[in-house]
Amino acid sequence: MLSPETIKAQVESLVPGAELVVVPNGSTDNPGALLVRGEQAVAVARALREHPALRLDYASNVTGVDWPDQVLREKHRIKLIVEGEEREFEEERERRVPGYLEVVYHLYSMALGHGPVVLRLRTGNRNDQVSLPSLTPVWRSCELQEREVFDLFGVRFEGHPDLRRLLMWEDYQDHPMRKDYSDPDDYEYEPTAHDRVLARSRARQGEGAAS
């Protein structure tokens, strides 16, 4: 199997204007993933499928990952003049890292029996820029899995032939696999002896009665 760096170079030479970034992986497993910009994704995917040394004809696994907005605290050294003397201080600054939704594709080749090549696509943010191109036209195995990512994470796949919720029902609003998802507490619950849902729902009913 070619290394991600080689694949990156080959794809960049095949697809004009493509820019791939190798995302390293800290575990003992595969060497790293290729991060592709949304607008180039379909062209890159096709190149990966057609490339004679790769022939990635099989998209095994498609899944979403939610990376919420993060507030990083970083320490900075600053120099200030205090009482005529220059002294070093440490200052803590907060840095907001905007979150995004990521879609991960694991590609294999049935023809050549190798893999995986991991492809990652990222959305602009988690609220209004959640569109990515669908790779279903390239690998049909993405059809149901992209529907699942749309359902559970809320990524909109442009060009998907039938983008509907897969597991939740049609008029459901939220995206349960997001990290900030909280369970609704208005569903039919089964009271058990020590049940958080029960306690919460009691509190809620109490509120309702008071108002």
Partner: peptide
């Protein structure tokens, strides 16, 4: 507590390729 990173393991289950990511 595994170190940060990711892995994809798959086997030939009786029904097909069963993978965990």
């Amino acid at each position: 507590r595994p170190k940060p990173g990711e892995a994809y393991g798959r086997i030939e289950a009786p029904k097909g390729e069963l993978g965990f990511y």
